[in-house]
């Protein structure tokens, strides 16, 4: 009898262990202790990033944490708040593979050196496009932390304090945290931009954008898994599967239409830059978007002032005003800065 009661207690222990395990699973992997790294000046770090050699073959998982507060746009689930991931493979010599999973489908882009194949499992279509050998593989700016971080550093140094603020562990690799803060004179919604730089390869690993009034990042793009080393060559070939529709991509579809638009006007510099562009004619816009552009006529709130009237769209890091006469002003600034720019 005693042993039976003892075993009953073991049973309860197992149940409690299960509950604790469930709790442990729910805890995010979290940042470990900040790694100890030799100090480096911000200037040296930025320089080493710009001069860094190609990291060579790699396989990585890129995660985008989006808390920008953008209105939901049909067809672009990544734009709305939430987390999305993508897998990237590179052979270090221009061939690459990008795979963007969605709930029950996947988009895959393979660059085998001569042809770029884009596969969409939703409608089983393959779009192929021949690329010259001298051409760089197309990389989405948002999902490539390297390009995104380097651009941010170059643009913001003039009006920001740049400092190396401690270290962090990103994707299991020790990294320096490069922090850019706007100078007090800048009128911006942003509080700081943090870039985690790999201590060994000097590859930007993570880009974090923090906005005023929130301790959680408004946007974070970075590697969550990263391994260097030779990749399976089979990853960089693509054969259209049986039953798929293969189409040739038209040559540079964007260029034919873009020159019709006037150059956007830029007001201010640094963090409080405001870009004022002219929208396509209103009648075309109301037909649900001319070139697949999302219909923006139903979002935002009505505002008006000496500059006219329009709709204001607020997000965590940026504000945009679409005026009734077809101008769009946008920037990482409060609405007042936008209206001042529109009045000029």
């Amino acid at each position: 009898m005693a042993s039976r009661r003892g075993w009953a207690r073991v049973g309860m222990g197992v149940a409690v262990a299960g509950a604790v395990g469930l709790g442990l699973l729910a805890v995010p992997a979290g940042a470990g202790a900040a790694p100890e790294l030799p100090p480096v000046s911000a200037e040296d770090l930025v320089t080493s990033v710009v001069e860094a050699k190609d990291p060579g073959p790699l396989h990585a998982t890129v995660t985008l944490d989006n808390a920008l507060g953008l209105p939901a746009i049909p067809g672009v689930p990544q734009a709305a708040n939430g987390t999305s991931t993508a897998q990237v493979w590179s052979d270090g010599a221009g061939k690459g593979r990008l795979s963007v999973p969605s709930g029950q489908g996947e988009k895959t882009i393979v660059d085998d050196g001569t042809t770029v194949w884009a596969w969409d499992s939703a409608d089983k279509t393959v779009t192929k496009k021949a690329v010259g050998t001298e051409q760089k593989p197309p990389q989405a700016d948002v999902t490539d932390p390297a390009a995104a971080a380097q651009k941010a550093v170059a643009d913001l140094r003039a009006t920001s304090t740049v400092a190396v603020d401690g270290t962090a562990e990103v994707a299991g690799r020790p990294a320096y945290e490069l922090v850019l803060r706007p100078l007090p004179t800048e009128r911006t919604l942003l509080r700081e931009v943090r870039v985690a730089v790999d201590s060994e390869k000097r590859l930007p690993l993570r880009l974090t954008v923090l906005a005023n009034g929130s301790s959680d990042p408004a946007l974070q793009v970075g590697f969550t898994e990263l391994e260097f080393g030779a990749q399976d060559p089979g990853m960089f070939t693509f054969t259209p599967p049986p039953g798929a529709t293969v189409t040739e991509a038209p040559d540079r579809p964007g260029d034919a239409q873009k020159p019709q638009r006037p150059e956007p006007k830029v007001v201010g510099d640094g963090w409080d830059t405001v870009v004022i562009a002219t929208m396509p004619p209103a009648d075309a816009q109301q037909q649900g978007g001319r070139d697949g552009a999302p219909d923006l006529s139903s979002i935002g709130k009505e505002v008006s002032g000496p500059w006219g009237s329009g709709r204001e769209i607020d997000t965590a890091v940026a504000t945009a005003i679409i005026t009734s006469d077809g101008r769009v002003a946008a920037g990482a600034v409060p609405a007042q800065v936008l209206t001042e720019a529109l009045s000029q």
Binding site: W7, A8, V10, G11, M12, G13, V14, A15, V16, A17, G18, A19, G21, L22, L25
Partner: peptide
């Protein structure tokens, strides 16, 4: 974990 919880309580 659910198996451990269920199995432990059952036992």
């Amino acid at each position: 974990c659910y198996m451990a919880i269920g199995g432990g309580i059952t036992t």
